[in-house]
Amino acid sequence: MVNLIINPLSKKLKKINCDTTPNTRLSAIIEAYAKKNSVSDPNRIKFSYLAEENDKEKDKKKRLPLKNYLTLEENGLDFAQASTLNVYAKDVGPQIGWRTVYFLEYLGPMIIHSLFYYGYYSASDMTYTQVLAYNLTLLHYLKREYETLFIHTFSADTMPFAFLFRNSGHYWINSLLIAFSVYSPQSVVYSNKFWSVIHHVEDRSLDELKWFGGAMVLFEICNLYCHIILRRLRSDGTRAHKIPYGFAFKFVSFPNYLFEFLSWTVFAVMTNNWSSYVFLVAGTGTMMMWAKQKHAKYKKTFGDKYPKNRKAMIPFIF
């Protein structure tokens, strides 16, 4: 047995001495601690510990988060040096499941696009380009929902409830812009040039649309396959990060971002509407930032084992 001293970082929590073992899963300790503090949702409680970090000039302590799904030992708590260790508990407020957040993120665009397509505008007045744009958009978000419910695994169970609005804002706001701009009647002649630019959608021929539609569906399938490869890495139930191999992972760390970028590039060029380009630029910028950060984390975690010639998101370039 070892002794774990749980120090509160939130006023409503209590300091508790806990007798446990190094191979006890942290989630079990958090559940017991939450019950002792009358906290109905254990996901509100996050544990951390202080680790030494050399800062060249002086030593300083850095607070590191503990992962609920790991044991105390797997989290790096070394009871070989001392039988009593300190950890810190904080109430991080109302939580919401990652899967729930993703589901709502993608449900919003499907509702918004459908309301504009069938309600605010008339579906019977749509050009072939607009019809394909709507169906491709719906297909994309239906694929996202399928991945959310049946493919994705998450390193953490929950996130702060307030993040729901931050995360959904990107998809919901851009969906409003695209739906308002892309599905408007193309037969209307605007006296104000501003509105003619806002609502302009390229009038593509059926032969052109076959190529655009085929290319976007292909990139969506490639994106889906990347997620399946990532899912297989955790088929044993573990949440630990592993090095993905095969398919486009040979060239980049995050080909799922690459195919997402290619998919929406096709959509933007096909519609040739300003809102599609805004969504493309905003989404690509975010994905490039994520890819750069996660790529650096991969290299730091796996060191020489990580493929040296693999780029973050764009083969041979970025």
Results as ranks from 00 to 15, higher is better:
12 K>T: 12
15 K>F: 03
23 N>E: 13
24 T>I: 11
26 L>Y: 02
27 S>Y: 05
30 I>W: 00
33 Y>T: 10
35 K>R: 13
38 S>R: 15
41 D>M: 02
43 N>F: 04
44 R>M: 01
45 I>P: 00
45 I>R: 02
46 K>L: 02
47 F>G: 07
51 A>I: 08
51 A>M: 08
57 E>I: 09
82 A>V: 01
83 S>T: 14
84 T>V: 15
90 K>N: 07
93 G>F: 00
94 P>T: 00
102 Y>C: 06
103 F>C: 11
107 L>M: 13
122 S>Q: 13
123 A>W: 11
126 M>I: 09
127 T>C: 10
128 Y>T: 11
128 Y>Q: 14
129 T>E: 04
131 V>I: 15
138 L>R: 04
138 L>H: 07
139 L>Y: 11
144 R>T: 04
147 E>M: 03
149 L>A: 13
149 L>W: 09
151 I>E: 01
153 T>K: 15
155 S>C: 05
158 T>W: 00
163 F>M: 13
165 F>P: 09
166 R>M: 09
166 R>Q: 08
172 W>D: 09
178 I>H: 01
181 S>V: 07
181 S>W: 03
183 Y>Q: 12
184 S>G: 09
185 P>F: 10
186 Q>A: 10
189 V>N: 11
191 S>C: 07
193 K>V: 12
193 K>P: 06
199 H>W: 03
199 H>Y: 11
201 V>H: 08
201 V>G: 06
203 D>Q: 15
207 D>L: 15
212 F>E: 11
218 L>W: 11
226 C>T: 04
226 C>H: 01
233 L>Q: 09
239 R>K: 14
240 A>T: 11
243 I>Q: 01
243 I>Y: 00
244 P>R: 05
244 P>N: 03
245 Y>D: 11
246 G>Q: 02
251 F>L: 09
262 L>E: 01
262 L>M: 13
276 S>L: 10
276 S>C: 15
276 S>E: 03
279 F>P: 03
281 V>A: 12
283 G>K: 03
284 T>A: 14
285 G>R: 06
287 M>G: 02
289 M>I: 08
291 A>M: 06
294 K>M: 02
295 H>I: 08
295 H>E: 04
295 H>L: 09
298 Y>V: 02
300 K>Q: 07
300 K>M: 06
303 G>K: 04
303 G>S: 07
304 D>W: 01
305 K>T: 05
306 Y>W: 08
311 K>T: 12
312 A>M: 07
